[in-house]
């Protein structure tokens, strides 16, 4: 069952903390989104494995953009 990780707010992709194939647990930090000069961590919605990363560092994303897909 694939789970999408969505951007909780608009901003810049500051850092991607995981790579494809990584095993993550619920509430692990996956990505840091920079908005208004503030670093906002995005947490994993569930346990799983990173299947796909849809964004790259420095990219501007809108709210609800798909950041990565978990499996």
């Amino acid at each position: 069952m694939a789970e999408k990780v969505l951007a909780p707010l608009a901003g810049n992709i500051w850092e991607i903390l995981v790579k494809v194939g990584d095993k993550v647990q619920e509430d692990d930090e996956l990505v840091i989104i920079e908005a208004l000069k503030m670093e906002n961590p995005v947490y994993s919605p569930c346990d799983g494995v990173i299947k796909e990363i849809k964004v790259s560092k420095g990219e501007q994303v809108q709210e609800d953009a798909v950041l990565m897909i978990l499996e």
Binding site: P8, L9, A35, L36, M38, Y43
Partner: peptide
């Protein structure tokens, strides 16, 4: 609540 993103609402 670390998953509560209030930043944009606060703007």
């Amino acid at each position: 609540d670390k998953k509560n993103y209030l930043l944009m609402f606060a703007m």
